[in-house]
Design a protein around this nucleic acid. Structure first.
Lengths: 199, 199, 199, 199
DNA sequence: GATGAATGAGTATTCATTCAT
DNA sequence: TATGAATGAATACTCATTCAT
């Protein structure tokens, strides 16, 4: 692949991320994607075998970004406060989820599409999140007896849900922003040591 | 509308629910929906102006079902245990979400589609859930100081996330069932009175 | 199938025969076929699963016509003269071949296309032709010792070749009509009784 | 043209012959031809103005080969036996026809394609074949009164038809080899002196 | 009310051809 | 000379929608 080719490929990946995120898989036409990248439709097919492969590449790349947001988290155990760390993280997840959510939605209703995806990539953030919580638990900054895997689910569920409902509300023209921090604090109330109030 | 017409309309609504849930909006063709209902394609247009209106009718009906699952919840305040009530509820939400999730996904990536939806209908379960928690809080079965609106979000997020991730995992061929009860217990740990252990 | 539908199907079959014959399989676009039939492109797909199925239907129908031209031939044994019978037949074959030849050509260079064809249908005329010659041989109007199967090939080869070369010559703008009767007479010289001159 | 360029040109010609013969004109993509020649697609256009010109070059070259097979035939008049000479020739024609037939088929259904061909080149073998028969007729090895032009057609038609039907049978998965020698002997029965039996 | 035939705009994909390197 | 990236017109096929019966 020449340098120019590589650049075009990345351009397509970026444009496709935007278009898929905004319009979903079915709504994102190759015409639109090409236009967004400023290339011809044919060029897509020089870099990806078909639309599904392009989608898979974008989806994997975005999920990796989601994963990146949490992967270094375990190292933070013991620094700052647990609440600070988690709020920062939840915010990062939210950013990536905004791109990924509609793509995941598309993938989950299309068996062929799902087949093109790297297995397991979807639950990316859960494992590192659980690892972090476990480390903090060892340091006594998470209440003993808390099941860290379940706590990770409860924490991840908040930005995940917030983004999805927010998208819908936005599409419907209503406002209805969800108070993520509040929900996180509720969960924190269940996992932080009882003598250390969440807020 | 004759009786026969009404029957056909309901038949279409039921078939469409199944097809939309399984294939999403774009994947659900009118041909498929008509076939599932055992009527001709043309018949759809005698009952609904277009595909979007059919979708909106189905979506609203399903969301109402989701709402029904929680609407009587406030009355349960004080009966059984809070945990029992919530687990029962979360299970009910999960059942309905399985149908609604892919439709919501579709709606959230199609502005025209979203416009056809009754505003506000999507967050159906959140309000009654908060009302219930508030009632329990007054009864002393929920820790004072807990923000019930935020708690409702944290609780609702669990089945919501579980269903969505489960769909994707299933479509991708992986297993990965999410432990909903565990996550709920973590949240409960933050809202039940501290002397009453969650499990 | 309603009456109207049946009529449309036949209309498509007729138009497709003309377009396939003139332009070959690849050259015959669905757009062109639809236009020739005076229907929309989509209508083609109400009657045939895809272009290949339409082609197969046309090809089979035309080959059947070719077969019809010879199937009653054996009954003619003993009537008129052998030469008259064969010249009439060869002319009939030529007429049908003009339609079939380019379609056969297309089929022979496309494995998928060929697969859609009814096996064996292509050599249709050879068998009845051989049967006729055998009957005449029994009547003493064909020289004994002549291999009727081989004679059928030699006779069929003439209109077959004439049509194909003629098409090419025409396409190239040259004239070059082939003298079919002359060639047939040469073959007849080898199969008629020696005391009965061909011409 | 440099030596390297000339070599590339011939390489392309050879590869194109194979690909056109196997897939026909429409089925033979420039990508495939380039790949078969081990060069890039762009290189084709350094040697040929467009695909049609490449096709014309190949077609002419192959037809010339067909012509070569017969051109020296008249010199053989009087040597060996007429039957031996003709059977050898027919076999040679068959070999070349296998390549040419699908290309001729393509040419005959595409007016633009045909226009790119050297006029008259298609009937190559007929003239020398007639010349040979005429020479033999003068030597008394062909029955007087036989129209040599017509005899040439009858003889050429056999391998021509055999190859074409064979291709189709092969594509359709059936066997059905045609007995060329038998058919030739039938024709010979009509042109050899009557006292000299064909076989 | 219901049918199913017909529509035509729209979609992903292919492919001969061009051009900068 | 050769490359391979880019093009854009063309193609088979789909699908929501209309309408005569």
């Amino acid at each position: 692949m020449t340098e120019r080719g590589e650049a075009t490929r990345q351009l397509l990946l970026d444009s496709a991320t935007a278009v898929f995120s905004e319009l979903g898989y079915a709504g994102a036409t190759t015409k639109e994607i090409a236009k967004a990248a400023g290339v011809s439709e044919g060029t897509i097919y020089r870099h990806f075998a078909d639309k599904r492969e392009l989608f898979a590449a974008v989806f994997t790349e975005r999920n990796a970004a989601n994963f990146d947001a949490v992967i270094r988290l375990p190292e933070l155990a013991g620094t700052k406060s647990v609440r600070e760390n988690l709020l920062f993280l939840i915010e990062a997840i939210k950013d990536v989820e905004r791109d990924v959510a509609p793509m995941r939605a598309a993938a989950s209703t299309d068996a062929d599409l799902a087949a093109a995806l790297t297995s397991g990539s979807s639950m990316g953030p859960l494992t590192p999140l659980a690892l972090y919580l476990e480390a903090e638990q060892r340091l006594g900054r998470i209440r003993p007896g808390v099941d860290v895997a379940s706590a990770a689910v409860a924490l991840f569920a908040v930005p995940f849900t917030a983004v999805t409902l927010d998208r819908l509300a936005r599409a419907m023209g209503s406002s209805g922003e969800i108070d993520m921090a509040g929900a996180i604090d509720v969960v924190l109330g269940g996992i932080l040591p009882q003598d250390e109030p969440a807020t």
